[in-house]
């Protein structure tokens, strides 16, 4: 019998700390599979965020750096510029990439750094207990928007991918979802494309993944997948943005 599937070499065989139904485990695995399939494990250097995925380096079995909250793309810039032969990517949540790190995100993109960015959008701060994220939907309840996000006081969900697409330094942006098997297949393709762009020197590439957070959405894992499809993806439409 042919072996058609096995545990990715780039993913350590350890239990994760993620909640049941969380999207991070999926995203980690897809990235690890892509790294293996492209033969990048010995070349890749990841930059982990501050947030739920802060210890991503405990799960990936390749070189990784920590970064202060929001600074992943500054750290990645430093790494890639001194080691252009390596494949450098950041893995960042919505708070990290689109709130505290907005400055680093926009300017790394605008410099056209030849980097790959994986942006996990789950519309909430998970690690700190479910506060409002820049991507929190209107009327979505969080611990800091107990009545639901109100545009009058908290503004609107930030569409940073669309903003970044305006910059000439940005070469590829796609929004995908971890909400169904079919979407997961598309997500993996996008991840591979974002890596290939760096390998080929094409430039700044970002994959935004709509990712379930059942714990702080107050939904079951299954309901969370429906929520992505029926509600979240209405605000954050899937597809190639650039």
């Amino acid at each position: 019998m042919d072996r058609i599937y096995s545990h990715p070499q780039s993913l350590r065989d350890v239990p994760t700390h993620y909640c049941p139904g969380c999207g991070h485990g999926l995203a980690h695995r897809l990235i690890a599979e892509a790294v293996d399939e492209l033969g990048l494990r010995e070349q890749v250097i990841a930059v982990a965020p501050v947030g739920c995925a802060v210890i991503a380096y405990d799960y990936w079995d390749f070189d990784c750096s920590e970064a202060a909250h929001g600074r992943a793309l500054a750290v990645a810039t430093g790494i890639k510029r001194v080691r252009p032969q390596n494949i450098v990517f950041t893995y960042q949540g919505d708070g990290d990439l689109a709130a505290i790190g907005t400055n680093e995100t926009i300017h790394a993109a605008n410099r056209g750094e030849n980097l790959t960015v994986f942006f996990i959008n789950n519309a909430v701060y998970g690690m700190t207990g479910g506060q409002m994220a820049p991507t929190t939907l209107l009327n979505q309840k969080t611990s800091t928007t107990p009545e639901g996000r109100n545009a009058q006081f908290q503004g609107y969900p930030l569409k940073i991918s669309e903003m970044l697409a305006l910059l000439p330094g940005v070469k590829y942006i796609e929004r995908v979802s971890l909400g169904s098997a079919q979407d997961i297949t598309k997500t993996k393709k996008a991840i591979k494309k974002a890596f290939m762009n760096q390998i080929e020197g094409i430039g700044f590439s970002l994959v935004e993944m709509l990712s379930p957070c059942p714990t702080y959405w107050g939904l079951s894992p299954c309901e969370s997948l429906d929520w992505i499809k029926n509600i979240m993806a209405k605000e954050f439409p899937l597809g190639v943005i650039k």
Partner: peptide
């Protein structure tokens, strides 16, 4: 070598963090 005019002091020190993590004198 590499020279970058950073977007802010905060970015500059974190770029130094990255370059140093990758082994360069920064």
């Amino acid at each position: 070598g590499v020279f970058i005019q950073a977007e802010a002091e905060v970015a500059a020190i974190n770029m130094v963090f990255g370059a140093s993590a990758a082994g360069a004198r920064s």
